[in-house]
Computed example of a mutant assay.
Amino acid sequence: MITARGIKKQFGDLQVLKGIDLDIRQGEVVSIVGPSGAGKTTLLQILGTLDKPNAGEVSVNNIAIQQLSEKELSRFRNANIGFVFQFHQLLPEFNAVENIILPALIAGKNKAKSEEKARSLLAFLNLHDRETHKPAELSGGEKQRVAIARALINDPAVVFADEPTGSLDSQNQEELHKLFFKLRDEFKQTFVIVTHDLHLAHRSDREIKMKDGYIE
């Protein structure tokens, strides 16, 4: 599903990743854990095609990422990868459905069908009564579930999540933990999650522990 070999990344004189080899299987829920500065988010961004390594190779669904042009990479990312961030990244002027369908519209999909699918995802996430609510009218947990629906709208093969529970209270954290596994079982996606939340990490299928730019 995801293969990384010899991944190195540096920013100026600071070497953040020092040679990462990694395999993630389809349908796994994998957590990447470690202290601040270990390189977790940098690795997630490279695996998710948001950044490029200085050395090494990444393939997702048997596609060699480094061989794609920028335009091909954008299309591949939109069709195959979903992202969930700590602070939701929802557009404040759009309601829940409008935020969710943005990746589908970028992919050139039919707007009416995309809105129908967005409503279906909201219903699955117990947000059927929040379709027309804008982010300012949603709780933190509701915003994060809208962000997850947006990540799922194009049926991605893999969802990358960067500290998805970091801004949530304990009750919403627990609900989100359960939701990741429910989504995996329902939609068969792979989830790769960077987290300091050890409760979430321990519940994952596998923990990947990082320290000082290496996998321990």
Rank of each mutant, 00 (worst) to 15 (best):
E98P: 04
M1Y: 06
H196S: 06
F180D: 01
L90A: 11
V58N: 06
L73W: 12
D212W: 06
I24K: 11
A4G: 14
I100G: 07
R130K: 13
K209F: 10
P156Q: 02
L105Y: 04
E28Q: 12
Q66C: 01
G39I: 06
T49Q: 08
V97W: 02
K111H: 00
A64N: 13
L73K: 11
L102A: 06
I63W: 04
K9P: 11
D197I: 08
E216P: 00
E142Q: 15
N172F: 03
L47S: 06
L198W: 04
Q89T: 04
A149D: 00
I32F: 13
S139R: 01
E175V: 02
K211A: 11
F191P: 06
I153E: 07
A136P: 00
F83C: 10
P92E: 11
A201V: 02
R145Y: 07
G56I: 08
K18V: 07
E93L: 11
R206H: 03
S139V: 05
V30W: 04
A4I: 11
P135M: 08
N61R: 08
E175D: 14
K18D: 08
F85K: 01
Q67N: 15
E93S: 13
E174R: 12
R25G: 13
E98G: 09
K18W: 03
G48A: 12
L43C: 12
L102S: 05
V30P: 12
G141I: 03
S31Q: 07
L138A: 04
R77V: 00
Q86S: 08
V146H: 01
D13H: 14
E93M: 15
L179H: 05
L44V: 05
P53V: 09
D169H: 07
L43R: 05
Q26N: 14
L90E: 15
T3E: 15
I208A: 13
K113R: 13
P103D: 04
Q171N: 09
R203V: 01
Q66D: 11
T41W: 10
A157N: 11
K52S: 14
I153A: 02
D212L: 00
V159Q: 02
N95C: 10
T132G: 02
Y214Q: 11
E137V: 01
N54R: 07
I24G: 14
P135Y: 12
E216V: 08
F187Y: 15
L43W: 01
F180A: 03
N154E: 03
G56C: 07
P103M: 09
A4F: 03
L122Y: 06
F83W: 12
N110R: 09
G39S: 11
A118G: 13
D212P: 09
F11R: 05
T165I: 02
E116A: 14
H128S: 15
F160L: 09
A107V: 11
E57T: 12
F85T: 10
Y214D: 00
G34E: 09
L198Q: 09
D205G: 15
P164F: 08
S31P: 15
A104Q: 03
N95V: 05
G56L: 05
L22Y: 03
K143P: 02
N62G: 11
I193S: 03
A107S: 15
D129L: 10
K8Y: 14
I32E: 12
S31T: 13
I63S: 01
L138R: 01
S139D: 04
L122T: 10
E116Y: 00
L14Q: 11
A147P: 07
A79E: 15
A96T: 11
V97S: 06
K40I: 14
I100Y: 08
F187N: 08
